[in-house]
Design a protein around this nucleic acid. Structure first.
Length: 117
DNA sequence: ACCTTGACGGTTC
DNA sequence: GGAACCGCCAAGG
């Protein structure tokens, strides 16, 4: 039996559209876990390699509230995440992404329709 | 039951 | 913008 909170988090992350990003706290809120941004980070670190429910979890679309990648610059995962984002046209200036332009802004109906808690 | 660990967040300087 | 500081809280040991 896998941790139920992790599943909610992975499911929510799968809703982030291509070319958009979301921050940890935002995912926590949408997943019904307000105030648990750090749990989102933990959950993403435990994403099954082969995806979940036959779909890949786009972990790389989750960044912190300052618009930055949460891995140390220069680390393997930092570079990988940066590359994957750039491949879908997300613009990164220095180490920063303009949330104004690229943050996912889901509407209520979108969430209610796809989330089954 | 206690302690440590986080891919965090906001506040402040 | 950036660094220091503190609050947060489930998970896992």
């Amino acid at each position: 039996m896998l941790n139920p909170h992790y599943q909610q988090i992975w499911q929510t992350v799968q809703l982030i559209p291509i070319g958009k990003v979301a921050c940890y706290g935002q995912i926590a809120d949408l997943a019904g876990l307000p105030g648990r941004a750090r749990l989102v980070g933990k959950a993403l670190g435990k994403v099954p390699e082969g995806g979940w429910k036959n779909k890949a979890v786009p972990w790389f679309r989750v960044i912190n509230s300052q618009g930055k990648i949460s891995f140390p610059p220069g680390s393997e995962y930092f570079d990988k995440q940066k590359q994957l984002l750039q491949e879908e046209q997300v613009v990164i200036i220095g180490t920063r992404i303009k949330l104004r332009d690229f943050q996912w802004q889901p509407d209520l109906s979108e969430i209610l329709f796809s989330l089954e808690f």
